Simulated assay, not measured.
Amino acid sequence: MRFYTYLFLTLLMFGCQNSAADKNAEPEITNTSKANSLPPQKSETKAQVPALNEEYINWDSVRINGKLPMVTKTTALFNLIGKPDSITDPNMSDVCVSYYYKDFKYAYLNNTKIEIYGDTAVVSSLDFRKGSELKLKTPTYTFDKNTSLESLEKFFPVSVKEKYELNVYGIGKTVAVSIPTSKEPSDDSWLLLFLNGKLIRLDYYLPC
């Protein structure tokens, strides 16, 4: 009887040990690759570099009547093209953009518009109407009242090809041609306005 009792206790203890061992066993690992548990990585792409302009008129190369740059001394400009018809103080809250970020005055001479910063003048618009003798000369081309859309196309075919209609206050519908101011892409440009095939105005255009 003692033998059977001893045998029963021995089997009971052996079963408990196996049960404890099963509880302490490491869980089964079904995926040993950490990389497989991460989301797929996006491939890196290089930033696209804007293409250089095929045609442009360098801002620093132009001369008013072949003599003065677009930014010059106020007295020198008035001596060259004449005294303004009027000088006004603009409402700065209505000004979309200006060459310098400070107060200035507008000077007008036969619809040519100039920003006056004391002794510094910035020509923002040249008007070639009303018998104007104004010219804007570049190293390879001269803009004046005789400039036609047809002649411009020979020097700037890409820009003229992209011409568009523009309704201008005080003038009406015009044909507009935009020409970059440098080989490198930038926001500013030359805006040429044509009426009946002839150049009537040239603006240095700065977007708002």
Rank of each mutant, 00 (worst) to 15 (best):
R2Q: 14
R2T: 14
F3H: 14
Y4M: 09
Y6S: 13
Y6Q: 13
L7G: 12
L9G: 11
Q17R: 13
N18C: 13
N18M: 14
A20R: 14
A21C: 12
A21K: 15
K23R: 15
K23L: 15
K23A: 14
A25D: 14
E26W: 13
P27C: 11
P27A: 12
I29N: 10
T30H: 11
N31P: 02
K34D: 09
S37I: 07
S37H: 12
L38C: 03
P40H: 02
Q41P: 00
K46H: 08
A47V: 09
V49C: 03
N53R: 03
Y56A: 10
Y56R: 08
Y56L: 07
L68G: 01
P69Q: 04
P69H: 04
P69M: 02
M70S: 06
M70T: 09
K73Y: 11
T74M: 00
L77S: 03
L80M: 02
P84H: 01
P84K: 03
D85M: 02
D85K: 05
S86E: 10
I87N: 03
I87H: 03
I87S: 05
D89L: 13
D89N: 15
M92C: 04
S93F: 11
S93R: 09
D94L: 11
D103T: 10
F104N: 02
Y106W: 13
L109P: 01
L109Q: 08
I114Y: 03
Y117G: 01
G118K: 01
G118E: 01
V123K: 04
S124R: 14
D127Q: 06
G131C: 05
G131H: 06
E133T: 15
K135D: 05
K137E: 13
K145A: 14
T147H: 06
S148L: 07
L149S: 10
E153W: 06
E153V: 01
P157H: 02
S159Y: 02
S159M: 01
V160Y: 06
V160R: 06
E162D: 12
E165V: 09
N167E: 15
V168H: 08
G170M: 07
K173I: 07
T174K: 00
V175E: 14
S178L: 12
P185H: 04
S186K: 08
S189T: 11
S189G: 09
L192V: 06
F194E: 04
L195I: 08
K198S: 11
L199Q: 00
Y204A: 00
Y205T: 03
C208Y: 12
